[in-house]
Amino acid sequence: MKIAIIEDEESAVQQLKNLLTEVITTAEIVAVIDTVEETVAWLKSRPAVDLIFLDIHLADGCCFAIFQQCAIDTPIIFTTAYDQYAIRAFEVNSIDYLLKPVRKERLQQALEKYHRLNNTRQVLNSEQLLQQLTRDITKATQYKRHFLIPYKDRLIPVSVDDFAWFEIRSGVVRGITYDKKHWLLEESLDELAETINPETFYRANRQFLINRRAIKEIEYYFNGRFCLHLSPNAEEPVLVSKAKAGQFRQWMAG
C-alpha cells in the first residue's frame, strides 16, 4: 500500500510511520510533505498513492486551502490534535478523523474502514458521513484526557495517559504515573472509571484501576484469580477475581 503523510511535526511523522509499520507490513511511505504549497504541487503531478494521512495545521497554513486549489480523489485520513475541524474534514474525501496522539487501536480501525470501503467500492453521501462523524467524534472526545491537579499553590496538568494506575487507600484516591509520582485526586475511583477510556483502563478490583500499558505480566493465582505484575511495581498484589477473569482476558486481548 502506497501512503503519503502530509504533516509538519517530525515527531508526529515518526510516530505515524512506526505505527503503520506495525499495522501494515506492506506499507510504503512514498511522500512526507509539510506545507500546503508543496502538497498542491505534489498532488497536481497525479502521484500513484492509495491513502493520504493529512494534518489540519501545516507549516504554511490550514490544509483546507489544498482543496481549494486541486481536486483530491485519494481517500484521506485526517490526523490532528484538535476536534473543532471534524465536520469540515468530512465534507471532503475523508474516511476517518484521528485525534493526536494517534493510538494504534484507532489507526487499525481507520485502516479497516478504508479496506472495507475500498473493497466494496462503497460511496458515502454527505449525510451518511456526517452521521458517521458524529459517532466517531463523540466516542473520541467523551473521555477525560487530562487532569488539573492542585499542588501547593499551583495547578499541575497531567495527561491521563501518563498514569500507570489509580488506586484508593484509606478513602484517598491516588494516581501513580510511570515516573513513580503519586498524585492525590479529588474524584472517586468510581467516577474515574466512568470518565476515562475503558479501552485503556480496567477496573481490576475495588481498589485499582489499571492502565493496559502498565500490565507487564499476568500470573495465575489461587482460586482461579489473576495476579497482575505492573510497571512500575505496585506496593501490594493487584488481583482480578475469578468472576472477572474471563472478562479481563477478553479486555486484554481486545
Rank of each mutant, 00 (worst) to 15 (best):
K181N: 08
A71E: 13
E37K: 14
Y85H: 14
T74A: 01
V173S: 01
Q122V: 09
N197W: 01
Q247L: 09
N119W: 05
H115Q: 10
D161S: 12
P237G: 08
Q122P: 00
E127M: 12
H146M: 13
Y151K: 15
G224Y: 02
A204Q: 03
V36A: 04
N233R: 15
I215W: 04
Y85F: 15
R154Q: 15
H146Q: 15
I5G: 01
S159D: 12
F201M: 05
D60Y: 05
L185F: 06
T39V: 07
Q132D: 13
I52F: 00
L228T: 03
K144H: 06
F201Q: 01
Q14V: 12
I6Y: 03
Q247G: 02
R203K: 14
Q142F: 06
F208R: 08
E194G: 00
F201E: 00
D161H: 10
P75H: 04
R145M: 09
P47C: 11
A89I: 10
S170C: 08
D60G: 08
R203S: 06
F163S: 01
P101F: 11
E28L: 15
A31T: 11
P198S: 08
M1E: 05
T35C: 04
D8A: 12
D8I: 11
V32G: 00
A65L: 10
S11N: 14
D60K: 06
Q84F: 07
L111S: 01
P101G: 03
Q247D: 13
T141K: 07
S170Y: 08
K2Y: 10
F201L: 07
V240Y: 02
V92S: 03
Y151T: 11
I87W: 02
T35K: 09
I218G: 02
P101V: 09
V40G: 00
I72C: 05
R213H: 13
I5P: 00
L148E: 08
K44D: 09
F201V: 07
R225I: 01
I66W: 03
S231R: 13
L129M: 10
G175L: 08
K152R: 15
Y220L: 07
S170W: 12
R135M: 08
T74G: 02
L148D: 07
Y82R: 08
N118C: 05
H229S: 03
F67R: 03
V240L: 03
V102G: 08
T39P: 04
N119D: 11
L230I: 09
F64S: 02
F222V: 13
P237V: 10
I218K: 11
A48E: 14
T25I: 13
F64G: 05
I72H: 02
T138V: 10
E186R: 12
N205R: 10
L184Q: 13
I168Q: 06
T39D: 02
L228I: 04
V36F: 04
L16C: 08
L189M: 09
T120K: 13
H146R: 15
I95Y: 07
A27Q: 11
K216T: 11
I33E: 05
K181M: 10
D136M: 05
A234E: 01
V30Q: 06
Q14P: 00
A12V: 14
